[in-house]
């Protein structure tokens, strides 16, 4: 068990605005070993980013609040730590990179200054040593002429370069866990390929686990070992990347996989879609959150929330019809008419 880096149990996060209560994350559990990469995939509003930000307790309170669960990081429950102890973990043992590299750097300080600051916060180095380390980090993330670039301002960098700087800052203190929240979404494809390559290379040289949050399954296939599929604040399926790709079990995962436009989809055929949109999390949802859009849904789905079961080794899913004894067939004729459900 010493291999275990992070265990999240039943994490719940809610946002309150006026009289509306939004259950953004509703009982998420997963675990992560050292040097392992886990991907969290889902559509907007699925709670994937909120899950990630709450690991660092960076949810703005108010309106947000972590209302339940445990986050065990190396034998410590992060939710029970004092603010001071938590600050020691942020940026040091767990660090995070964000989606938009243009707003996550402070425009009035030089890039080097910002890396030095983050190094000095957590390590007892003098300014000179910290600077050397910062230059080294810039070189590590593939910034040419690092020494010259050190004293430049963020606006003199391109988007891809800024994201490299963010990665340099995040990795400066050799964190054990790196949370990447849609790190390539704002970037062009050719730059995205560069950054993903960089992250993979770095992982070989530094012992860091990565939590990769994305809406793009392609990015998951590129970088991760395990994957969590999230829908409406719940994990609906989890397992190794290979398992999820070869043998997905949850109807939502099927919909997600099928509606991807990949090279193998012929432009002659119609794209398969999931009808409707994700539910509004400020309203009470009874039963399975996906039931309203699920082509296989029956009465039980609207009444009872399905539990996570281990359908195959290391492969969990939350669906009433996916048990060890009984399986839905993905290719089964989809029941288009849902009139048999009484809502």
């Amino acid at each position: 068990m010493s291999d275990m880096l992070l265990t999240v149990e039943n994490l719940e996060v809610q946002f309150r605005s006026g009289s509306t209560l939004t259950k953004a994350v509703n009982g998420v559990s997963f675990s992560l070993n050292r040097k392992e990469n886990i991907g969290i995939v889902g559509e907007s509003g699925s709670g994937k980013s909120v899950t990630a930000t709450s690991l660092l307790r960076l949810i703005p309170d108010p309106p947000g609040k972590i209302t339940g669960g445990k986050i065990i990081f190396e034998d410590k429950d992060l939710l029970k730590l004092s603010d001071k102890a938590m600050r020691k973990i942020r940026g040091n043992e767990i660090s995070m990179i964000f989606q938009d590299p243009s707003t996550s750097l402070n425009p009035v300080y030089t890039v080097g200054n910002q890396i030095v600051e983050s190094i000095k916060t957590h390590q007892h180095l003098n300014r000179k040593e910290a600077k050397e380390k910062a230059v080294h980090m810039l070189e590590l993330v593939g910034i040419p002429e690092a020494r010259k670039r050190f004293s430049m301002y963020p606006h003199e960098f391109s988007g891809g370069m800024r994201q490299r700087v963010m990665i340099a800052i995040a990795l400066a203190c050799n964190p054990k866990l790196l949370i990447a929240d849609e790190p390539t979404t704002a970037l062009d494809v050719t730059v995205q390929a560069q950054i993903l390559n960089l992250m993979k290379d770095l992982q070989h040289s530094i012992d860091t686990s990565i939590i990769m949050i994305t809406h793009d399954l392609g990015v998951i296939w590129e970088t991760c070992d395990k994957v969590l599929v999230m829908y409406a604040g719940n994990v609906v399926e989890s397992g190794t990347v290979q398992e999820i790709y070869d043998n997905p079990l949850h109807p939502y995962t099927w919909g997600l996989l099928d509606s991807q436009i990949t090279e193998s989809v012929s432009s002659e055929e119609e794209l398969s879609t999931i009808p409707g949109s994700p539910p509004d999390l400020s309203l009470d949802i009874s039963g399975c959150p996906f039931a309203a859009r699920c082509p296989f849904a029956e009465e039980i789905c609207l009444k009872k929330t399905p539990e996570m079961i281990e359908a195959a080794e290391g492969h969990f899913t939350a669906c009433h019809f996916q048990t060890k004894e009984h399986r839905l067939d993905r290719k089964e004729e989809k029941v288009d008419d849902r009139s048999n459900i009484k809502s």
């Binding site: 891809g160 370069m161 050719t190 390929a193 793009d216 790709y245």
Partner: peptide, 20 residues
């Protein structure tokens, strides 16, 4: 640079340096 279609796919990449 299109991301992989499946975890099994092996992609020969031309990684461009720099950005536009």
């Amino acid at each position: 640079s299109i991301p992989k279609e499946s975890p099994n796919e092996v992609k020969e990449r031309i990684i461009l340096s720099g950005s536009v």
